[in-house]
């Protein structure tokens, strides 16, 4: 029983962190209708940078999100204004290919600059745990989870309580109507892309402590994140949250009762099963498509 509770608690902790990582992907898709394949590469880029920062200055990896998030916000904004925007209005498949290309460029850049080897940031609390009764809570996971909750909460407030957030939500629901009431489409899209990248900034810093990584790890991460988003329903934030929890639980439960190697596969099987019953994902809405 304790083993089961332990697995569930760990699953929730990891699920919260996955939710943060997936939120950027679903935000960008919601507003821009772009599947940002480079989101996984963003994570690895930030993780590598965080690792370097920790090694050279000793700044706590999770805390360094305060630095990496604004940097990624800037990078996302620049990428959108000068690269991604050029293909707006083209077929959706082009955006997949473009962001795939960006992911490869980041991977290649990391290979050349940082070298192709496994890394992991290991601060003092790396192998310590909080103990609650019989249950062990690894400190790194707890700190990461707390950071994720803070950022997700902030993102929620930003989207619901500010004009910029309302502009983003309006554009994601109906771009042309949003443009008609004076919301600048380009500025809003750039903001959404930048925010989505910034969330990868925080996610990447957390990742650097929790998981060993190397430049090509981004394939692994992007397929997990995309799985979460497909499971929850493309473009739905609550859906991403639920999808992330399902992934976290599927992983810890399979790792506890089966073996670690198969845990990702179990998650893909869950996605397939869900798609069989609900092709649009758990929270995906089917809206009218005849009025463009």
């Amino acid at each position: 029983m304790a083993q089961f509770v332990q697995a569930v608690v760990l699953g929730v902790l990891i699920g919260g962190i996955y939710a943060l990582m997936a939120s950027g992907l679903t935000l960008i898709f919601g507003v821009l209708r772009i599947v940002n394949i480079a989101q996984g590469a963003f994570l690895i880029l930030v993780a590598t940078f965080t690792w370097w920062l920790w090694r050279t200055t000793g700044i706590d990896p999770i805390l360094s999100a305060v630095i990496t998030a604004p940097l990624m916000f800037g990078l996302g904004w620049v990428l959108y204004r000068f690269v991604v925007r050029r293909i707006s209005g083209q077929a959706a498949s082009m955006s997949v290919l473009l962001t795939f290309g960006i992911a490869l460029v980041i991977e290649g850049f990391l290979n050349v600059v940082a070298g192709n080897k496994f890394r992991s940031a290991t601060p003092a609390y790396f192998e310590q745990s909080f103990r609650v009764g019989d249950i062990l809570l690894p400190k790194a996971q707890v700190y990461g989870f707390l950071a994720a909750v803070v950022v997700l909460g902030g993102l929620y407030l930003l989207l619901t309580r500010t004009w910029a957030g309302r502009a983003i939500r309006a554009t994601s629901q109906n771009p042309s109507a949003a443009a008609l009431v004076g919301i600048g489409a380009t500025a809003t899209a750039a903001l959404a892309f930048a925010l989505g990248s910034a969330s990868a900034g925080v996610g990447g810093s957390i990742l650097s402590v929790l998981y060993p990584f190397f430049p090509a790890s981004h394939y692994d991460w992007i397929s997990r994140l995309l799985g979460i988003v497909v499971l929850g329903g493309m473009g739905s934030l609550p859906g991403a949250l639920v999808g992330a929890l399902v992934l976290g639980l599927a992983e810890t439960l399979t790792a506890t009762y089966g073996s670690l190697q198969w845990s990702t596969l179990v998650f893909y099987l869950v996605i397939m099963a869900v798609l069989l019953v609900r092709p649009q994902g758990l929270f995906g809405a089917r809206l009218r498509e005849d009025v463009a």
Partner: peptide, 27 residues
């Protein structure tokens, strides 16, 4: 499974399938 819907689920599953195949072949 994935081609009953329109849109993006397909591209995503194709990456997942490739990685899954690698996992199966390894394990």
């Amino acid at each position: 499974v994935v081609l009953r819907t329109r849109g993006h689920a397909f591209v995503i599953i194709t990456i997942a399938l490739l990685l899954s195949a690698q996992i199966v072949a390894t394990n």
